[in-house]
Simulated assay, not measured.
Amino acid sequence: MDAMLVIALVIAAMVIILVIKGLMIVQQSEAVVIERLGSYHKTLEPGINWIIPFVDQPRSIKMRRYQVINNEQVAVVVEETRIDRRETVLDFPGQAVITGDNVSVMVNGALYFQVIDPERAVYQAENLVQAIEILAKTSLRSEVGKMELDKLFESRQEINDKLQIVMDDAGNKWGVKVTRVEIQDIDIPRDVEDAMRKQMTAERERRAMVLQASGEREAAIARAQGEKESAILVAEGDKTASILRAEGEREAINQIMAAADGRIDPELVIGYLMGLEYLNTLPNIAKEGDRVFLPFESSSVLGAVGSLQQLLQQTQGKAG
């Protein structure tokens, strides 16, 4: 009886040990790949899980991580049985890249990925992080090599989008979802940076000269337009003045003729007025300079005087 009790206690203890050994608690956002006798069996989800001890074993996954040792970023390969399914950032160090115009630049990037299928992540890649990093670097070299340096700074988002497409295609095979790729820094040689600075300065000066020339051209156009309008107004004023003066002279002749009531020859009146207009014009011509030489037409003056004399004689004769 005592022997049976001892055997029962031993069996109970073994069962308890097996139950305890078989219990596995998986944390939230984690997953564990279980192999049974060397073959894939299942993937443990978060919560309490039970496996058969010594028969079911968790399969480890190699992860390449960066650690800071002596103020230097060093890559370390570790084996983990628990697969982190959270989004992970991979900040790979800067690398030399040759652009399309043969300029060597240092590009530092960051990659965000998330394990979607733990089974594929374990069995499809020997070192998941290393595979992702190498693919990202080679894809980055390929895309940057197609662009010239000037376009490289303007096309960061374009490069990020193309890299994400490439990484997604490979990530589907590895059970990984690449959420985004970012180019952090682009370091260029000092001489190239100085040349670019001089080029930008020259470009700004060129734009300033173009703006100044454009402003001067618009000012000249506006000034010419103003002079044109002013000349038109002066011409219209002279025209109007001439018309009014002619109308005034005609009205004066009509009044004189009406007052004379046919007693005065109209040609005498017209000759008198023309001679008088000539005499009034001479002082205005002299104002244009210090000395003005004009041929003196005495006949115009004498004609005006003669017309006046005949006009007076006719007036007196008619009155007598």
Rank of each mutant, 00 (worst) to 15 (best):
R141E: 15
L152P: 02
R64M: 13
Q73H: 08
A235S: 11
K177L: 12
A231T: 05
Y40R: 09
N160V: 05
V6C: 08
N70L: 06
L163N: 09
V129W: 10
V301Q: 03
D117F: 14
G22D: 07
G145H: 07
R245I: 14
A220P: 01
L111W: 07
I256K: 00
I11W: 08
L23G: 11
V19D: 08
T201L: 03
L279I: 11
G47L: 04
P189M: 01
D117P: 08
E182N: 11
V105D: 06
E35N: 08
R180E: 03
E251Q: 15
A131P: 08
F293K: 12
I51K: 07
D187P: 03
E251M: 11
Q164L: 13
S242H: 06
I51Q: 02
G303A: 05
K62R: 09
Y66T: 13
V89A: 12
Q164C: 10
L244G: 07
A170Y: 15
Y66P: 05
A224Q: 13
K318Q: 12
V74N: 04
D101N: 02
A8N: 05
Q199C: 00
I253Q: 06
Q27H: 12
E229M: 09
G145F: 08
I186N: 00
E133F: 01
Q164T: 14
E249T: 06
D2N: 13
V77C: 11
I116T: 14
V166R: 14
D56P: 07
K137W: 04
A231H: 10
Q130P: 04
I253C: 01
I134C: 05
E80Y: 09
T240D: 08
P58N: 04
A252Q: 07
V33M: 02
S104P: 02
R190W: 00
V301W: 00
I61S: 09
G171R: 10
P93F: 03
L23K: 11
W174R: 01
T201W: 01
N49K: 02
G47K: 00
A258M: 08
Q309I: 06
V181E: 05
A125V: 14
D2H: 14
A208Y: 06
I51L: 03
L233V: 10
L37Q: 09
Q57E: 12
E79M: 02
V26D: 12
N49Y: 03
N71D: 15
E87H: 04
G94Q: 03
G262A: 08
G47V: 02
L135N: 10
L135R: 09
V107E: 03
R204Q: 07
L111V: 14
E148A: 00
Q316S: 09
A110H: 05
I7F: 12
A260R: 05
I20K: 14
E119K: 12
K228H: 14
Y66I: 15
Y272F: 12
G306S: 08
E218W: 00
I34W: 06
A213R: 09
I270L: 14
V33R: 01
L276K: 15
P118H: 06
